[in-house]
Design a protein around this nucleic acid. Structure first.
Lengths: 336, 336
DNA sequence: CTGTTAGCGCTTTCAC
DNA sequence: GTGAAAGCGCTAACAG
């Protein structure tokens, strides 16, 4: 790898000292205009750019944000990553992305590695395993080093940091209420991610609405064994004569639709389906599905915005906050 | 941000010189075992980790790969990114990801920025705009600096670097042949990405097969205006009495299916549909769609493997190569 | 106006 | 066995 031009070389070629060259490049007023011009000229001739590593070492600022995601094949996180990248790069930050694959151990490793790589801050969505074991010791070092952390979507109350979440409970309530309003009486919730905090909130929301209404009954299905989700859901649909299903995650919703088709139920005439998902499913399914949008992109962008703001305006006595991004029910016109 | 422990501090606390501590941590045989033990003990007490910036500055190696993607909301690239990240992290590399949003200008900026951030190498899929304007000057600096580059999927023949691609032409030929074999006579190809190299190859493949067979007719539709793709495709389907459609990209395939439903055509009884897409569509569509898998994950992983190999075994006289990952036609059982 | 010096944290050569 | 010193490329306080 050929070496890039350095201040040293420019200085030598111009018969100036390194510091004069450095100052000239910053248009320091104490340098003569003539020198400044000479320096700029040669610098742009060689297409000089300061070595980012050296600058970072000196300034302890890398302009890099560490992003730790549980998955990336899940469209929700892909969208969130997009939002993060857009907002970060707009503000002069680059992002280094690590994917834990829902593993607690990998999460620990990545947090440590990125911390020792001197990222300026973190944006994290906890892995499923981390949420299950509920061990959060790997964040204490960040706390101690005063490295800003913003958690989004998969957050923990036990960590004192900024958080960006959607109001999953409220969203779920709205979805169920919508089903009730359109005449559904026997409603099911189906989930394949019952371990996650978000799923719990969604379930709570559904129960809250149906508990207060004696004409409505709620049936619940939690599928954990990823091998025969399809069978489980098919049986469940056959056994219960449902008016509606709320899929708490994209997989649950997608399979519910496919199985309904298979069983000959027409959507939405025979059974209504609403899903927590972020666009793709509803965009490609037929008939188009009513969804609860998670606003993933906005969630990511907001997390980045908060982090960048902290990074650029460091405040010793900063008080953390939790930002709630509103969800919305997106109704699809099947005839579209 | 609190400072992390440095060699200097360890040295002071142990009454040793910095260099002795440094060597001890590396278990240098010229240091006494006793000292080595003392050093290790204190180091692990403080959870010392060498400052990655300083090490990189010294060694001109960052263990970081720059990844430049045109999109991330496209599932193909999300999968590729996943493959890249897996393979990179397995080999001790982290990745910094930039998304060009198909913009030529952004691509230039990101290539330069990452180069001056001293990434060890690049993995790139060209932006659509770059492929259209066909300007590749931003890669000459990398060439000159001898920074290894691996291109994947969206590549250019004018750049001498390693490339990982799928054999799009061959894949297209196979898909068309499959349609012919199953009895289709009037076949259409529909694309919304006709500017891309991959689309051109796919179109070529389709033409090659149909040109040599006089009983088969090929109809082509290129949609560029992203506003009314749906209408265009609907009209096209109505106007032509097709036996089959090959969607050259996910959007084309998805809309073809939806419009077929809308027009009352049954799939595959009335019309067969095959799509170039990577999983999601076929997974969630009903009936399940026959697809040409791009093996995105494998493509990304292979690109990373090649790059890491180059990085770890630097060879002045390395000769670049083009790796072709085989595509495959994935038939779906609609009754599944 | 320009240059010298010290230092960011580490590695490595060379003295002692 | 251990330590001093130079240097990676840059910035900034301080001299001149």
């Amino acid at each position: 790898m050929r070496k890039k031009v350095t201040l040293k070389q420019l200085a030598k070629e111009l018969n100036l000292s390194i510091s004069t060259v450095s100052k000239s490049l910053k248009n320091d007023p104490e340098i003569s205009q003539k020198t400044i011009n000479r320096v700029h000229e040669l610098a742009s001739f060689y297409n000089y750019k300061p070595n980012a590593l050296a600058v970072s070492l000196k300034s302890s600022k890398t302009n890099t944000i560490g992003v730790i995601l549980p998955e990336i094949l899940n469209h929700f996180f892909a969208k969130a990553l997009f939002g993060i990248e857009q907002e970060a790069s707009k503000n002069g930050y680059k992002i280094v992305t690590c994917i834990t694959n829902e593993s607690y151990q990998k999460e620990i490793e990545y947090v440590e590695m990125l911390n020792y790589s001197s990222v300026d801050g973190f944006i994290i969505a906890l892995s499923q395993e981390t949420q299950v074991v509920n061990q959060l010791g790997h964040f204490t070092a960040l706390k101690r080093d005063k490295v800003p952390v913003v958690m989004f979507d998969r957050v923990s109350n036990e960590i004192d940091c900024d958080k960006v979440i959607v109001d999953d409970k409220e969203a779920s309530k709205n979805a169920i209420q919508y089903l009730i309003d359109t005449g559904c009486k026997k409603i099911a919730v189906i989930t394949t991610i019952s371990d996650l905090s978000v799923a719990k909130l969604r379930l709570e929301g559904a129960r809250e609405v149906t508990n207060t209404n004696e004409h409505i009954s709620l049936v619940e299905l939690e599928v954990k064994d990823s091998n025969n989700i399809e069978n489980k859901i098919e049986e469940f649909l056959k056994k219960n004569e449902l008016d509606a299903v709320l899929g708490l995650d994209e997989t649950a919703a997608a399979i519910t639709i496919n199985m309904s088709h298979k069983l000959g139920y027409k959507i939405p005439e025979d059974i209504s389906v609403i899903g927590f998902t972020d666009g793709l499913l509803s965009k490609h399914s037929y008939p188009k599905l009513t969804t609860v949008s998670q606003h993933a992109e906005e969630l990511g962008a907001e997390a980045a915005r908060i982090l960048v703001n902290q990074l650029d305006n460091f405040d010793e006595n900063y008080k953390t906050k939790t930002e709630i991004v509103k969800t919305s029910l997106i109704l699809r016109d099947s005839t579209n």
